[in-house]
């Protein structure tokens, strides 16, 4: 009586971005109709070359766009069924979305612990719970435990770990990670990605991972979107993407010269998560 595997129901999509357009400074059109769905408790990756609009997409979700004079001018973004486009970032953090910005952005003139405590800024459940969670972060990233000085003196890898740890401190429902592999050695990238995967497995937090390192990202993500020049040009489950000839050539191929999808052929979006 084996029924076909039940596809994730619509209500399992925790974040849904529908056909958004983003404009900076009232004139610079950067996203031109981006749609993506992120199912609850999974890792989804958003790949693409420099300047594609990946960070802009994350900032549109987290509301940080407003701090850069950007605005969602069309389409909508729903998180757990509620519209969140163009809301204030602090409101979106309270709703449970936490963005780890590109380039780590830890607070350099504070200690590791102060940075972690700030991650818990929006929480109301008391000092003891926060202390507990700091310990939990140290269990995930044991090498942070010994760092007692200012966070500005941490190595790049440690700063990235601190940035992720700080996100965990907010106990978010969803984490937006912007290029966590940036500037890290291959070994460290492995270590950080393993922790991201473990984090998702252990806590059930949903992760939207922006990466240029497609190979690593597709190792831990279940589903991926590929973006170029402000549009999603391809999407699919991890295996489909890994086996796709064009993805292989342009994103996974060693150091072959990178061309653009668009010059090759125009993709129609074949399917979404559902």
């Amino acid at each position: 009586m084996a029924e076909p595997a039940v596809k994730p129901a619509a209500d399992e999509i925790i974040l849904s971005v529908n056909n958004i357009e983003v404009v900076y400074d009232d004139v610079i059109l950067v996203l031109r109709g981006v749609s993506l769905d992120v199912p609850k408790g999974r890792i989804v990756t958003l790949l693409g070359p420099n300047g594609a609009g990946k960070s802009t997409t994350l900032k549109a979700i987290s509301g940080l766009l407003g701090t850069e004079d950007g605005e969602v001018t069309r389409g909508n973004i729903t998180f757990m069924g509620e519209e969140i486009a163009n809301r204030a970032p602090e409101e979106i953090v309270r709703r449970g979305i936490f963005q780890v910005m590109e380039g780590r952005r830890i607070i350099e003139d504070m200690t590791v612990t102060e940075n972690l405590r700030l991650g818990a800024f929006t929480r109301k459940d008391g000092a003891a719970a926060i202390r507990n969670d700091i310990e939990m972060v140290f269990d995930y990233f044991p090498r942070l435990r010994e760092r007692v000085g200012l966070a500005g003196y941490l190595s790049g890898g440690e700063q990235q770990m601190l940035a992720i740890g700080r996100a965990m401190m907010a106990r978010p429902k969803m984490i937006l990670l912007d290029e966590p592999s940036m500037g890290l050695s291959p070994l460290l990238v492995k270590e950080v990605f393993a922790i991201i995967e473990k984090l998702c497995r252990d806590t059930g937090v949903t992760i939207l991972l922006v990466e240029q390192n497609a190979r690593m990202a597709l190792k831990i993500a279940e589903f991926g979107y590929i973006m170029e020049s402000g549009k999603i040009v391809l999407d699919g489950a991890k295996d489909d993407l890994v086996n796709n000839e064009d993805v292989k050539e342009f994103y996974l191929g060693g150091d072959k010269e990178r061309k653009s999808f668009k010059n090759l052929k125009s993709y129609k979006r074949r399917k979404r998560w559902l």
């Binding site: 987290s62 509301g63 940080l64 701090t67 850069e68 970032p89 602090e90 953090v93 309270r94 936490f98 963005q99 910005m101 952005r105 607070i107 350099e108 003139d109 504070m110 700030l118 991650g119 800024f121 929006t122 700080r166 907010a170």
Partner: peptide, 11 residues
Amino acid sequence: FNQQVAQSLGI
């Protein structure tokens, strides 16, 4: 330190 970072923390 940085207003955008502060906002990203929910401040």
